[in-house]
């Protein structure tokens, strides 16, 4: 049922639409300044290093490590009630910016700072494609 999606949805602006378009095709995009090469995230109009507004988008490799987390028990929004408790990870992406996403495939008790994780993508019903993280496979 398309009208059963009750979670909050993003409201992209022209500055941020490419990020959401990237997620929809399975790419986590990061802005890179065309003048000085500095990465910035979340998307915004100006490079805080050189103030250039010229930028391009690069896709994250998908590997990262756990920076911190919280396990959300109380659903502050009814759209998240059914899946509570859920774990939100803050992740250091290999590129040097951070990303947030829900944890899949691991109990929260097993988390520790620096744990390697891999970025994935998930879509629920008619909602947007969102980033999620799983434990990185042993290499």
């Amino acid at each position: 049922m398309s009208d059963s999606f009750t979670k909050p949805i993003p409201h992209p602006t022209p500055d941020t639409q490419p990020f959401w378009d990237g997620l929809a095709r399975g790419e986590y995009l990061i802005q890179r300044c065309k003048e000085c090469g500095k990465l910035r995230h979340y998307p915004r109009p100006v490079c805080d290093g050189c103030w250039s507004m010229a930028h391009e988008w690069v896709a994250a490799s998908g590997s990262g490590t756990v920076h911190s987390w919280t396990v959300c028990h109380h659903p502050f929004h009814m759209g998240f009630k059914a899946q509570s408790p859920y774990t939100l990870l803050t992740v250091d992406l290999a590129e040097g910016v951070r990303a947030q996403g829900q944890l899949r495939g691991l109990p929260a008790e097993a988390l520790r700072l620096g744990l390697p994780v891999a970025l994935g993508y998930e879509r629920e019903g008619e909602g947007p494609v969102l980033p999620i993280f799983r434990p990185a496979e042993e290499t």
Binding site: P8, P10, S68, T70, C72, F76, L88, T90, L113, P128
Partner: peptide, 23 residues
């Protein structure tokens, strides 16, 4: 936060601040 983290479930101040405390 409203655009990039609220859709992931980062809704209220308790959730927004908790990762600082956890770290």
């Amino acid at each position: 936060i409203g655009e990039f983290e609220l859709p992931l479930g980062n809704v209220a101040p308790a959730q927004i601040y908790a990762p600082m405390a956890r770290r």
